[in-house]
């Protein structure tokens, strides 16, 4: 599904601020895997997700999706395959546009936006049904500008938008980090349900050890631009937050 080969990304190359955000990362992710990505601040988690989404061209290495080399494709060219939710609830939605308008654009992800009214009564009814799936009562507020909603509501909608058209890959970058505990839990429950229902291949970055332990089928720990730990199946299932914190400590000691 996703094949990453010797991917390197250096920010500010040749300047005093040079950062090797990814160092020859190689990684294969199968269809249907739910990969949780953890790691300290600046370890390269967001950079990895951005590289998959096509936010920037890598310095070296290759990325292929479904056997197709996408290394040189821009983010909007890859959008057909990728659904994204960002850490900042403001990033995923257009605030002055209504819920319905945002959802309409999301249901056209990766396909041409044509010069015809797509948001007709039939489409409204369909979007109403889909947004009811969130169970937040947003289906009655489809004409409300999204900017008037709470962060949790916006994040839940962004999640719906990312999956309204089934993506090959779902990228979640600390998508619950900016929410209060209750909304975070609600969005996490939604995530789990949507990922299961649609059998989505998912990468989820989190700093929450509980989240990392309880969700997903595989766990990656990033450290200084490399994948320091890659646990699957039983090894992942047997994890506790305490074990993970122990692994972090080991990495710190090794770095000394």
């Amino acid at each position: 599904m996703i094949l990453i080969e010797k991917l390197t990304k250096i920010f500010g190359r040749g300047t005093p601020n040079e950062v090797r955000a990814l160092r020859e990362v190689s990684l294969g992710i199968d269809a249907g895997e739910f990969v949780v990505v953890i790691g300290t601040n600046g370890s390269g988690k967001s950079t990895l997700l951005n590289a998959i989404a096509g936010g920037f061209p890598p310095d070296s290495g290759r990325i292929s999706l479904n056997g197709r080399d996408v290394t040189r494709m821009t983010d909007h060219q890859r959008a057909r395959h990728i659904g994204r939710v960002f850490q900042n609830p403001f990033s995923g939605t257009a605030p002055t546009m209504t819920i319905a308008e945002n959802l309409r654009l999301a249901s056209l992800r990766g396909i041409p936006k044509r010069l015809s009214i797509g948001l007709d009564n039939g489409e409204m009814a369909r979007l109403k049904e889909r947004s009811a799936e969130l169970g937040m009562g947003l289906e009655t507020r489809l004409e409300t500008p999204i900017g008037l909603l709470s962060g949790g509501e916006r994040q839940a909608l962004t999640l719906l938008m990312a999956t309204l058209r089934r993506p090959d890959i779902l990228l979640l970058d600390e998508h619950t980090a900016a929410l209060d505990p209750r909304s975070a839990e609600q969005v996490m429950r939604l995530t789990e349900r949507i990922v299961r229902e649609h059998h989505l291949t998912t990468l989820m970055v989190t700093h929450d050890m509980e989240e990392a332990v309880h969700h997903g089928s595989r766990l990656l720990m990033m450290h200084e631009g490399t994948v320091a730990l890659d646990l699957r199946a039983e090894a992942k299932a047997g994890l506790t937050p305490a074990i993970l914190l122990g692994k972090f400590a080991e990495l710190r000691i090794m770095a000394r």
Partner: peptide, 27 residues
């Protein structure tokens, strides 16, 4: 009419939130 078409929605979103509309595949 234009700003209610799918193309027009994409135009408005471009000014409103570029990150969001690029993620929907708009150049």
């Amino acid at each position: 009419w234009l700003f209610r078409t799918d193309f027009g929605l994409a135009m408005r979103a471009t000014g409103d939130n570029e990150v969001m509309i690029a993620a929907q595949g708009v150049a």
